[in-house]
Amino acid sequence: MQQGGGSGTEVTWEDQQNINRFGRLNNRFHELEEEIKIAKETNENLEDASNELILTDDDVMKFQIGEVFVHMPNEEVESRIEQMKEVTSKNLGKLEEEKDSVLAEMAELKKILYGKFKDSINLEED
């Protein structure tokens, strides 16, 4: 976000606040990408687990809760996995939604800041 060149455009407090906001959003955007990646992985793992569960011949599974593997009937494991899947999917949806709104606001701020500072400001990633 360094400014180059020697243009004489004055930076007002309002501009500074817009730049701050943009910085925050950009940061959040990167956090969200990371969180979304993790949520997707978790979802896939749960999906794999429930597929394996269908294929198995055993009636009792070992399911990790806390630090130990609890022996648990298949149906119970299945319902637990379903529940976990639901939680992560919901979470994933929320994260995606937030990412969209962050991106929208960033685009809005870009319009304002580029509009004022032209090429004296760079808001793109390196």
Binding site: M1, Q2, Q3, V11, Q16, I19, N20, G23, R24
Partner: peptide, 8 residues
């Protein structure tokens, strides 16, 4: 925010 202000 303080970092950004200082950089600017």
């Amino acid at each position: 925010d303080q970092v950004t202000v200082t950089q600017v």
